[in-house]
């Protein structure tokens, strides 16, 4: 068992490292001039500089080193918690992220919880209801919810809840009220994705022969679905938990932009707009880290949920 856990940890670190490397490669190796790009972000126009000035400017941001050296020194920095320096804001990336962590964390958490509950409840209800029209509506809801651009949902919410009804503040991060609309914005998409997967899973599960056995005992449909359907239907969906949490976190980019919340999502948007490579690298790596941690937790807890599985062998589901 210890070996299994250690193995999982090693694997998680491996994925995290690979994600960092892939992002680094994307940012530094794609056919563009990363140096000009970043110096541009710092407000320096490369073509107007003399070679000497250019060299100083590069040295200022550590861009004069060979790419491999830069990669290893950056990686070493990440391992020690030094995420580099933002070129646009001339500030340590770690402190930038630290300052903005709280609003994003609270938003992501709220959205994740709402989405999990809503998605599960929707799928559960859709599989339970027999009345065809209601069933049809419920089963179509996820695909409906996933069809609306998130920013559009956000705008509609602002239009109605803030401007028309004046119930909630349109922007800002003050108080729980400011959390409501961003949470709805994010959780509609995430809940839709979850519900779509769960509905298929419920369909599969409820057509299993052991469900017939349970019904033949004389249990009601409600009891059968609760005692024999729920757990078995939820199990395969645990594989997409990491992806869903990732989706929640990245959705905050849109939500925070629309609702002007000063969080990491907003930071990401600004960083891309300014082509601030170190900040983008740090944020992508952070998101990968969240995914890795969620999956690690799921992997470690899974044997407790499914008695059949001793060592992380489970069926894979995709969204």
């Amino acid at each position: 068992m210890t070996r299994y856990i250690l193995g999982r940890f090693a694997q998680a670190l491996g994925v995290l490292w690979a994600a960092y490397t892939v992002t680094f490669a994307v940012l530094y190796l794609l056919p563009s001039d990363p140096i000009a790009l970043q110096l541009g972000a710092a407000g320096i126009e490369t073509d107007k500089l003399t070679p000497a000035e250019l060299h100083t400017a590069k040295a200022r941001f550590g861009l004069d080193r060979p790419i491999l050296e830069q990669y290893f020194s950056d990686l070493w920095g990440f391992l020690r918690g030094d995420l580099g320096e933002s070129i646009a804001k001339q500030q340590s990336v770690a402190s930038l992220i630290g300052d903005r962590l709280a609003p994003t964390l609270s938003l992501s958490l709220a959205a994740a919880v709402v989405a999990l509950l809503a998605g599960t409840a929707l799928a559960y209800l859709a599989s339970y209801v027999r009345w065809r029209p209601a069933r049809l509506v419920l089963t179509r809801l996820p695909s409906f919810g996933a069809s609306f651009p998130q920013f559009f949902i956000a705008l509609v919410l602002i239009q109605f809840l803030s401007f028309n009804l004046g119930l909630l503040p349109a922007t800002g991060i003050r108080g729980w009220k400011s959390l409501v609309m961003p949470t709805i914005t994010i959780s509609i998409l995430v809940a839709s994705q979850l519900a779509a997967v769960l509905m298929r899973s419920f369909d599969d599960t409820l057509s299993q022969p052991y469900i017939v056995t349970a019904r033949a005992k004389g249990l009601s449909r409600a009891a059968v679905q609760w005692h024999h359907g729920l757990r078995n239907a939820l199990l395969p969906a645990t594989t997409i938990l990491g992806v869903l949490v990732g989706l929640t976190v990245t959705s905050s980019i849109i939500a925070e932009t629309v609702f002007s919340r000063n969080g990491i999502g907003k930071l990401a948007q600004e960083a891309v707009l300014a082509q601030d490579v170190p900040v983008v690298l740090a944020i992508v790596t952070l998101a990968a880290a969240i995914f890795v941690v969620v999956n690690l937790v799921v992997d470690l807890l899974y044997p407790l949920l499914d008695p059949r599985i001793v060592q992380g062998q489970r069926k894979e589901v995709t969204i």
Binding site: V26, G242, V243, G246, T250, V284, A288, F291
Partner: peptide
């Protein structure tokens, strides 16, 4: 898969 689509696209 570990890098959310939107973030990878942003990068």
């Amino acid at each position: 898969l570990a890098i959310p689509v939107l973030l990878l696209s942003l990068a």
